[in-house]
């Protein structure tokens, strides 16, 4: 395989195809549209299912149906579109069918704008729809990582029969970077014991999110929570930069982490012993590692392209062990390294 220049949205689309995506349902929205366009071009040629639905609400319910039928399925959208999908996502979570969703985040609240933000953190990591559930949420910082995490998302979704969301800001969708995409693979179409394939010659199966008896629904919730514990144990992902001898740490994800890394290197050049901690899984959040880190360094700076959402998880992890400061850019304005460097200097005091 060779490194090629890929646009983030197209790398995600191609990576999903190579992971064995069989059916896609979506509705165009900037800054995600190239993803859907790429699949619209490729999937009919490959004799796979592509449908541009009449709305995001319809798309997510088509995803639900195809997933219940055992297909490897995904949708993609951007913030307002993902809001529209929340009812369907809650049904999917309750029904325990594997689904991959890509959110190329844009400015909000409301119709907002099409510029890059990370302001869907709460909605994505804390459930989004009604009821007790969390999707797995993976946040890439490069086009390469967006491709790799998308590929892996299908396996995770099937392993836990849950929703996996690839959460990237508009920058990552629009940016071109060299990437080496994962190899195409055949998917294993063995019957997994739950999918609806026609009950000829076997017991019928039911996929539902409706349990009228509270005791029955309690059992479903207990099972979902158990699965969530497993996910919290097995699927925490993060990357650390220059933290070995660090006295201070910056915590950021996605594009904000890359901006912060440049500022961290500038600060290092000025003699400040600072490093960067980058959560890759936003759910499960790396609470334990942040807790360790907060005992090791003197102060933390959280940088996000929102008003301070991951900040709350950092505070949960760090308790009151150390001072935590925050720098955020909102509304689709982006941070630059020369915005973050003074914040690092302020943290050091």
């Amino acid at each position: 395989m060779t490194r090629e220049l890929w646009k983030g949205n197209e790398a995600i689309a191609e990576s999903a195809l190579r992971a064995g995506l069989e059916a896609y349902f979506g509705y165009p929205i900037t800054p995600q549209t190239e993803l859907l366009e790429y699949l619209a071009r490729k999937m009919p040629e490959m004799k796979r299912v592509f449908i541009q639905a009449e709305s995001e609400v319809a798309a997510i319910n088509m995803v639900y149906g195809a997933a219940a039928g055992g297909a490897r399925v995904m949708s993609s959208s951007s913030s307002p579109g993902v809001s529209l999908m929340q009812e369907g996502l809650s049904y999917i979570a309750a029904s325990e069918v594997p689904v991959v969703l890509v959110d190329i985040m844009r400015g909000g609240p409301g119709l907002g704008n099409i510029a890059p933000t990370q302001a869907d953190y709460f909605q994505l990591t804390k459930g989004g729809g009604h009821g007790d559930y969390h999707p797995i949420v993976l946040a890439p910082a490069t086009v390469q990582e967006a491709a790799d995490l998308t590929y892996e998302a299908f396996d995770l979704a099937e392993k836990y029969r849950c929703i996996v969301i690839v959460a990237a800001d508009g920058n990552i969708g629009q940016m071109m970077e060299p990437a080496e995409l994962p190899a195409p693979r055949q998917i294993d179409k063995r019957d997994r014991g739950w999918e609806l394939t026609g009950a000829v010659g076997r017991e019928r199966r039911i996929i539902t999110s409706l349990y009228m008896q509270p005791e029955d629904l309690e059992q479903v919730n207990v099972r979902l929570q158990g699965k969530q514990k497993q996910i919290e144990q097995n699927e925490v992902r993060y990357q650390e930069y220059l933290l070995d001898d660090a006295e201070y740490a910056v915590i950021a994800f996605g594009t904000a982490a890359r901006v912060a890394l440049t500022a961290v290197k500038w600060a290092r050049a000025k003699g400040i012993r600072v490093g960067l901690f980058r959560p890759i899984s936003l759910f499960p959040f790396p609470y334990a590692r942040v807790a360790e880190l907060s005992k090791k360094v003197r102060a933390l700076l959280v940088v996000e392209m929102n008003a301070g959402q991951m900040l709350e998880d950092v505070r949960l992890a760090a308790r009151d062990a150390l001072p935590i400061s925050f720098f955020g850019k909102m509304g689709g304005t982006v941070p630059f390294p020369d915005d973050v460097l003074p914040e690092i200097e302020k943290m050091v005091g």
Partner: peptide
């Protein structure tokens, strides 16, 4: 910009290309 990015890649360098994609 893409010309430069492709050339950088061809020379084995690290490259990024980001467009303004406003309305």
């Amino acid at each position: 910009g893409q010309l430069l990015a492709y050339a950088g890649l061809a020379e084995g360098r690290h490259v990024t290309w980001i467009p303004s994609y406003g309305p």
